[in-house]
């Protein structure tokens, strides 16, 4: 269940963004950026871990704002813009880590003041009815519930659907589409910060290439969960289920003593099936147009 939880937190945020009509390819590498920032500020600059976590959040929100601002400002596809930030962050992650530590890892995060409290929040182990699990699972459930509530029961949620469904129409009736989009990018970045911090605190050392390649898996989980690639439709619970299916497949294949390479085959097959199913939904919704 554990791999599904960090993936699930990201998948929920990415699902919100996709419902709002955009992609974020920089989300995966941003978990690495935030984890490295936590490590470098805490270990290399000898700050309290909570200061490092705070700095990391500010950087994440800044990246999210930059993505959102550039997308709304230029009207270019978010795919291209965030591909740009993705590559830039990937370079920065390795470059700055080498600059500060002379290696490609930041370690020793557990020796920093404030670690105990951070561990309790981000990486403690709980046990209910004899089964031990990590706290990330609770956070995952909480974020899924929160995202569902926001989507279905708040004005902002209504704006997210509208902005992703038809931005011009939404703006015509007075929806602040630009603000909605920027908020969504910042939410995704904040989720990346949460996951990055969890990784840093849990593993106590961070590799410079952390998170690279994960961005597509978030999108796959969201799509398996029913998000339309074109925006305007999807759910947070669906994205969580997508992450769960993903996690179970990842665990199940070794149990069956199959080669782990088969995992990606199944992932691809599930993605195709999900997209085909989504297309049917959309057809149904648009069939009776006139």
């Amino acid at each position: 269940m554990d791999p599904a939880s960090t993936l699930g937190i990201m998948a929920v945020a990415v699902a919100l963004l996709m419902i709002g009509g955009h992609f974020d390819l920089s989300a995966g590498v941003l978990t690495g950026t935030t984890a490295l920032t936590v490590g470098i500020v805490a270990v290399e600059f000898r700050q309290n871990l909570w200061v490092a976590i705070g700095v990391s959040l500010l950087i994440a929100l800044a990246v999210g704002f930059f993505n959102g601002w550039l997308v709304t400002r230029t009207g270019l596809p978010s795919f291209i813009i965030t591909l740009g930030t993705f590559l830039m962050l990937q370079g920065l992650n390795v470059g700055l880590t080498k600059l500060f530590t002379n290696t490609v890892t930041v370690g020793g995060i557990d020796d920093v003041p404030g670690y105990a409290a951070a561990e309790w929040i981000f990486a403690s182990r709980l046990s209910i009815a004899g089964t031990e699990f990590r706290v990330a699972i609770l956070w995952w459930l909480l974020f899924t519930a929160l995202a569902t509530w926001v989507l279905l029961r708040t004005r902002f949620g209504n704006w997210v659907f509208a902005t992703g469904g038809d931005e011009v129409a939404a703006r015509n009736v007075g929806v602040p589409a630009r603000r909605t989009t920027i908020t969504l990018f910042m939410t995704t970045a904040a989720a990346a910060w949460f996951v990055g911090t969890t990784l840093a605190v849990r593993l106590t050392s961070v590799q410079a290439n952390t998170g690279v390649g994960q961005e597509l898996i978030y999108i796959v989980a969201a799509v398996i969960g029913g998000c339309l690639l074109t925006g305007g439709f999807g759910s947070a619970i669906g994205a969580s289920l997508g992450a769960l299916i993903f996690g179970m497949t990842q665990l199940g294949i070794p149990y069956l003593h199959w080669d782990a390479d088969w995992f990606y085959f199944f992932l691809g097959a599930m993605l195709l099936l999900a997209v085909l199913a989504n297309r049917l939904v959309r057809r149904y919704a648009e069939a009776a147009r006139r």
């Binding site: 939404a170 009736v173 439709f233 147009r289």
Partner: peptide, 14 residues
């Protein structure tokens, strides 16, 4: 917005 429920569309923006 075609994919949204009628009541959501009705109150969109208000």
């Amino acid at each position: 917005i075609p994919l949204m429920a009628i009541w959501r569309n009705f109150f969109l923006g208000a």
